[in-house]
């Protein structure tokens, strides 16, 4: 059972000067599991994710990924290790097209001896993009279109398709549907279900209770920088979760957060 754990954090802590944004977070994610992280604004959800993906450097604590303690120097290292992140504010370059964005920062290249001037392998990237889109069942009519010309849902799909184009061991999504309409949200949720079927472990941050209960196996509640509860879906219901979020209740074993 222990080998099953893809990600574990022990005592993960982040202080911004005097602000304790994240305090002593102990968290476990198993292979194939989809976990939702919920909590009020400023509860530490995004901070927690940023420490795992090394967008920021943690104050203290351990991150154990794929059986090994890790300390990534930056998001690229985390990504190379197999952690793919779909950021809240869509980390896409508007003026580039779909394959360019999917491969941004890790282009397929030829003539690598040219250093920064190595040649882009457009054909291979286009091919891999089409395969990635197929895997996630994302339909984008013309991948040579720049992101600027796409709808919010399509943009989000491109961001998610990134994760499928590379063999991610763990996918993290920070409010992937916050900016989307009803239909586009449905589209993104469908993609998340295909990831579930494929056995891809996932952490999703969301404010949407319906979505959380639709997609996640387990729900972790953050409150004022601490984990306040850790519940499987069948142990709880939306009203119950709201009580944990607001502080009316605190989970067993998480009394520190009270």
């Amino acid at each position: 059972m222990k080998d099953d754990i893809i990600l574990e954090t022990r005592g993960l802590t982040k202080h911004y000067g005097g602000v304790h944004a994240l305090e002593d977070a102990n968290f476990v994610l198993r292979n194939g599991e989809h976990v939702a992280i919920v909590g009020d604004n400023g509860a530490g959800k995004s901070t927690f994710v940023r420490q795992i993906t090394a967008v920021e450097q943690r104050t203290r604590g351990d991150v154990i990924f794929d059986g090994k303690p890790v300390s990534f120097g930056g998001p690229l290292e985390a990504r190379e290790a197999g952690i793919e992140t779909v950021f809240q504010d869509l980390a896409l370059a508007d003026d580039l097209d779909v394959p360019d964005n999917i491969f941004l920062g890790r282009e397929k290249t030829k003539a690598n001896w040219l250093g920064p001037f190595r040649i882009l392998d457009y054909k291979a990237m286009r091919q891999a993009t089409l395969e990635g889109l197929e895997k996630t069942a994302v339909k984008i009519p013309n991948i040579a279109n720049t992101i600027r010309n796409m709808s919010g849902g399509q943009r989000q799909c491109v961001a998610i398709a990134r994760t499928a184009s590379f063999q991610a061991k763990l996918t993290i999504m920070d409010e992937p549907t916050a900016a989307l309409g009803v239909q586009e949200t449905a589209m993104v949720e469908n993609i998340i279900r295909t990831l579930k079927e494929a056995g891809q472990p996932l952490i999703i941050i969301s404010h949407n209770m319906r979505q959380v209960f639709d997609l996640a196996d387990r729900i972790v509640v953050f409150r004022r920088g601490r984990i306040a509860a850790n519940l499987t879906k069948d142990q709880t219901d939306p009203q119950d979760i709201v009580q944990y979020i607001t502080g009316a209740k605190t989970g067993e074993g998480y009394e520190d957060a009270a």
């Binding site: 890790r106 282009e107 920064p116 882009l120």
Partner: peptide, 27 residues
Amino acid sequence: LVLKYTVYGKHTYAIGSNEAAARMSGI
């Protein structure tokens, strides 16, 4: 040719287009 066909060119466009995204992509 450099701007269109090399990593240097692509990253130049990416940084100009969305610097935060470029940084998050590991550039």
